[in-house]
Write a protein that binds this DNA or RNA. Structure first.
Lengths: 201, 201
DNA sequence: ACCTGAACACCGTTCAAGT
DNA sequence: ACCTGAACACCGTTCAAGT
């Protein structure tokens, strides 16, 4: 019956705030994110987030960082796929990317909004770069195996990135209902590879 | 010296609000759009916008509608280009699209955010459909001339739309600094046309 | 170190009232 | 028809104070 011995509060308020914020984000959108509302939901005072996130923007940045870390993990795993050939790994990575975006559309939008904003925080920059390091790495291996044109792998990856980004944008709006994404993603990869002068299939 | 005979105020407050809102949007972002601030700037009471825009979201929707109308006008003009061949017109339309997005990045983002939101207002839907009617029309003419595969022109246009959308996203972030957009857009058009099985150049 | 409670300056929205 | 002024319920942020 002793009051559940948290001295003032549960100690991991930071994590709880992030969790609650993500839920609220996907449920009601960034516009309606409210620190006071989150505080109410967690049963703490409205000033308590301040220690963990100096400003509302800091909470949002933290969500973006978390998102990029998850994206990196999910794409990285897909990209590893030992024993698979070049194109199969690229396709898996692309599927993982698109899958993440469709599963967390609001978080994904927030991440790219953060990406767009100038004056990025270092942690954000790091998380972002990690997430976008996998595809260039695969492309580089493709180059070394002579399966693809030479050139900066990062630039090449941008071409694929642009195509996938557009695909995601369209399908989030439900425009690609007819043909399933599972079918469209490999086509897009093949498509871009053709554009990159693949000289072997 | 008579007080400048506007009975209460200038009569076209609606237009002024839209104009001021667009400026504030590009200068400070959607997040920081404030009806009260706009009212102050125009020298009216903070309650006066209500007659013209029942809610802040209505102002934002009106901005989106205005944006799609302008986009439609600019792409439509590029797409007409009498006497030009199929691919040239497509390229011009693509350039106009990308040019608009880069010239008004915040408005463009707002437009696509509005596009994403469910329960679109009819005027928004109309403006949006008009803006996206030009490319399918060109593609259809390409089909009739036998220069491109059969299929729903709207679906085909989505492929081009996705590619351009991705391109815009990347270049707004300044990622395509190396190669100029002017060079990349025609390549993308050619690229997609190849994907659409162009059988004649 | 972490949280509270009161305070401050801002919002969007509503509404009776003025012209 | 269009605008005002006061009021209401909400914000984010700050800060002294509590544990």
């Amino acid at each position: 019956m002793k009051p559940p011995s948290r001295p003032y509060h549960h100690g991991n308020l930071r994590q709880e705030l992030l969790r609650a914020a993500e839920a609220a984000l996907e449920a009601r959108g960034v516009q309606d994110l409210s620190l006071r509302e989150l505080s109410r939901e967690l049963g703490v005072s409205h000033a308590s987030p301040q220690r963990h996130f100096a400003t509302k923007q800091d909470l949002i940045d933290a969500l973006a960082i978390m998102g990029f870390e998850r994206l990196s993990s999910v794409v990285g795993k897909a990209a590893e796929a030992r024993g698979q050939d070049f194109k199969a790994r690229l396709t898996k990575a692309a599927n993982a990317y698109v899958g993440f975006a469709l599963k967390h559309p609001a978080l994904f939008a927030l991440m790219f909004e953060a990406k767009r904003r100038p004056g990025m925080r270092p942690e954000l920059r790091t998380a972002l770069m990690a997430a976008f390091s996998h595809v260039p790495k695969i492309l580089q291996e493709g180059q070394e195996a002579g399966k693809i044109v030479a050139g900066d792998p990062h630039s090449l990856a941008l071409t694929l990135g642009a195509a996938l980004h557009g695909l995601v944008a369209m399908s989030i709006e439900g425009k690609i209902r007819g043909t399933s994404l599972k079918a469209v993603v490999p086509k897009t990869v093949q498509h871009v590879l053709t554009g990159l002068n693949t000289n072997k299939t």
